[in-house]
Design a protein around this nucleic acid. Sequence first.
DNA 1: ACTCCAGTTGAGAACGGTTCTCAACAGTGT
DNA 2: ACACTGTTGAGAACCGTTCTCAACTGGAGT
Lengths: 150, 150
Amino acid sequence: MTDPQPAHEIEAVFRQKGIPFTRQRRQIWDFFAGADRAATITEAADALRGEGVGQATVYRTVQLLSDLGLLARVQDGRGEICFIAPPIGHSHPLICGVCRRVVRFDGDGDVAELEARLAEATGFAIYGHHLEIYGICPSCRAAKEGDHGE
Amino acid sequence: MTDPQPAHEIEAVFRQKGIPFTRQRRQIWDFFAGADRAATITEAADALRGEGVGQATVYRTVQLLSDLGLLARVQDGRGEICFIAPPIGHSHPLICGVCRRVVRFDGDGDVAELEARLAEATGFAIYGHHLEIYGICPSCRAAKEGDHGE
DNA sequence: ACTCCAGTTGAGAACGGTTCTCAACAGTGT
DNA sequence: ACACTGTTGAGAACCGTTCTCAACTGGAGT
Ligand SMILES: [Mn+2]
Ligand SMILES: [Mn+2]
Ligand SMILES: [Zn+2]
Ligand SMILES: [Zn+2]
């Protein structure tokens, strides 16, 4: 439940919509799906530069995957915009502010009541939310304590 | 409780830290505090261009105010990065995806239990969160229905 | 197999938001 | 008045992102 969708399932989504799933698109998907932490577009472009994927294609494909709901945009501890391949279904990221490792969770139960109260109180028609939680992962905590100094 | 802090209270924060509260910094604060909706840095720079505030100063000051926790970064319906002057105390934004009007609320009660569960389950040391809720405000909804078409 | 064709790709140019430079300026203390 | 420190802003530089357009790809039709 925390593993991202394999490429062949993504390919099915593409086919169903009549969108070609090219070699480059697979490589870009694999880059994000294979990472256990959030990555920036620049990092993806750099990693795939030597693999026969142009940077324009990386930008275009990240945009495409985001539009299809197959990539989620988050921000790391320093406010950098990163992307992650979410697992099947709806979830939210718990992000390590140091190494950007991501653990997904489902927090909708907690937010649903809140949204109902807000809709009632404000008259807004609520259509979405954005919830990220930040922390320091166990291994980064250990590394920090090993660090002599604060 | 939903009004932003007046400039003289901000000035007190600056003084207490020994940071000059210049004319330009006041103008930039007033721009964000006076708006009832999220605004981009570019919009602030454009609005203050003729008022004797350079764009470099706008960027520097938004950075400074954010560092001091006096401005919050959010994103609008199209993913644009905007800033808002939060009211006294901790809160979260409910943002209209059409006009970017912002209503603040306190959702920490709902998130606290979730965070405790996550800390327990993952071993992360949680230090913060980012929660935004998106909707369409009553007036934009009315405008949309008045619109003939979907 | 050959052609057709709409969609995709990538090198490089263009673009535009953000940051940097540095000389002028403002404020404070002596 | 003077020195000193921090701020400001016009313009240049920077760099991440988007655009251009010719070459390419792959599927459909014949
Ligand atoms: Mn959710
Ligand atoms: Mn909160
Ligand atoms: Zn970590
Ligand atoms: Zn609205």
